[in-house]
Simulated scan of single mutants.
Amino acid sequence: MPINTDELLRILACPKCLGSLAAMVENNTAAGFACAACQVIYPIREDIPVMLVEEAVDMPTWNAQHPQAKERA
């Protein structure tokens, strides 16, 4: 079952800075949660957000690997 990103964004925070997150969408599916302050993306794998600092992907690497991913407004 796809995750409800709106609900998750209300309760999740960046594990590193405790800041807010934004959903990254690729092909109409949530692909990760972005922290603008830390400049990282926490990926979603098999419909499970991986909210571990050591699993975060820096934004330049993410953008190279996911060129169609956009921040959901």
Rank of each mutant, 00 (worst) to 15 (best):
residue 24 M to G: 04
residue 7 E to A: 14
residue 12 L to Q: 09
residue 26 E to S: 08
residue 61 T to H: 12
residue 17 C to H: 04
residue 56 A to W: 04
residue 8 L to D: 07
residue 63 N to Y: 09
residue 46 E to C: 09
residue 69 A to K: 06
residue 3 I to M: 12
residue 51 M to A: 02
residue 2 P to M: 10
residue 42 Y to M: 05
residue 11 I to V: 15
residue 6 D to S: 14
residue 20 S to N: 13
residue 45 R to W: 01
residue 41 I to Q: 05
residue 63 N to L: 15
residue 50 V to M: 12
residue 64 A to G: 05
residue 69 A to V: 06
residue 10 R to M: 13
residue 40 V to A: 03
residue 42 Y to T: 00
residue 63 N to T: 14
residue 8 L to K: 06
residue 72 R to S: 14
residue 47 D to K: 12
residue 5 T to M: 08
residue 18 L to A: 09
residue 39 Q to H: 13
residue 59 M to Q: 06
residue 16 K to G: 03
residue 9 L to W: 00
residue 64 A to H: 11
residue 29 T to G: 01
residue 59 M to P: 01
residue 57 V to K: 06
residue 33 F to E: 01
residue 54 E to A: 14
residue 53 V to A: 14
residue 23 A to I: 07
residue 35 C to F: 08
residue 56 A to Q: 01
residue 59 M to K: 09
residue 24 M to W: 05
residue 54 E to S: 15
residue 62 W to V: 04
residue 31 A to G: 08
residue 1 M to W: 12
residue 8 L to F: 11
residue 64 A to I: 07
residue 35 C to P: 11
residue 39 Q to C: 10
residue 31 A to S: 14
residue 37 A to L: 13
residue 43 P to R: 02
residue 26 E to W: 01
residue 24 M to A: 08
residue 22 A to Q: 13
residue 51 M to R: 08
residue 43 P to M: 03
residue 55 E to S: 15
residue 63 N to V: 10
residue 20 S to W: 03
residue 12 L to D: 02
residue 51 M to N: 02
residue 17 C to K: 07
residue 72 R to W: 10
residue 60 P to K: 11
residue 62 W to S: 02
residue 13 A to G: 08
residue 39 Q to S: 14
residue 27 N to P: 09
residue 4 N to W: 04
residue 39 Q to E: 15
residue 56 A to S: 15
residue 51 M to D: 10
residue 58 D to Y: 12
residue 28 N to K: 13
residue 27 N to V: 07
residue 64 A to V: 10
residue 35 C to N: 05
residue 64 A to P: 06
